[in-house]
Amino acid sequence: MRIIDLSTTIDAGVWEPNPVVHEILTPAEGARHMAEGMSKNWGVAFDPAELPDGELLSLDTLTLTTHTGTHVDAPSHYGTRAAYGTPRDIGEMPLDWFVRPGMVLDLTDAPVGTVDAGRLRREFDRAGREPRPLDIVMLHTGASRLAGTPKYFTDFTGLDGSATNLLLDLGVRVIGTDAFSLDAPFAYMIEKFHETGDRGVLWPAHFAGREREYCQIERLANLEALPAPTGFTVSCLPVKIARAGAGWARAVALVGEAAEPDAA
Rank of each mutant, 00 (worst) to 15 (best):
R2W: 06
R126N: 09
F46S: 15
L134R: 15
A246C: 12
L107H: 02
P185E: 03
V104Q: 09
A143T: 12
P238E: 07
L182H: 04
G118T: 14
G91F: 06
H33E: 12
V112D: 00
T177G: 01
D262T: 01
L95W: 05
E92A: 15
A208Y: 07
T66F: 11
P150D: 02
D5T: 05
D53E: 15
F153S: 14
R219A: 14
I24P: 02
T196E: 13
A143D: 04
L57K: 14
T230A: 04
E195S: 07
G142H: 01
V252A: 10
R199L: 01
D262F: 03
P229V: 01
G247A: 08
G69W: 02
D178H: 01
A242E: 15
L25P: 02
G245K: 00
A187N: 14
S7P: 03
E123F: 05
R122N: 10
R119D: 07
E130T: 03
A12M: 14
T177K: 03
L220V: 00
F232V: 12
P19E: 13
R250L: 03
V239N: 09
T86E: 15
R129F: 00
E50A: 15
L182P: 00
D160M: 04
L105K: 02
D262W: 05
A244Y: 05
K192L: 10
L57E: 09
I136G: 03
P101E: 12
L120N: 06
G128C: 03
